[in-house]
């Protein structure tokens, strides 16, 4: 999908979740390295807990304390 002046690139903020950006994208990281993704949509981690940073890996999700065991 071309991003022309008439058709703007859409960025969606998920409150409590990632930043959704229409791909493909290059993300310049703080250490000078660059991460690229060619997906149609890219979820960029904002909670900093992702193990695949800068991409979201759902680590932001709310957690329950309860352990579950099979009966």
């Amino acid at each position: 999908m071309p991003h022309t002046p008439e058709r703007l690139r859409r960025v969606v903020i998920d409150p409590g979740g990632p930043l959704l950006v229409e791909g493909p994208v290059k993300v310049a990281l703080g250490d000078g390295s660059i991460a690229t993704s060619r997906r149609f949509m890219v979820a960029i981690c904002t909670c900093r807990r992702s193990r695949t940073y800068p991409w979201c890996d759902t680590s932001h999700r709310r957690r329950t304390k309860r352990d579950r065991e099979l009966p």
Binding site: R61, R62, R63, T64, K65, R66, D67, R68, E69, L70
Partner: peptide, 10 residues
């Protein structure tokens, strides 16, 4: 969307 903190034995 809620994930268990610990081990989920099920």
């Amino acid at each position: 969307l809620v994930e268990p903190v610990g081990h989920d034995g099920t």
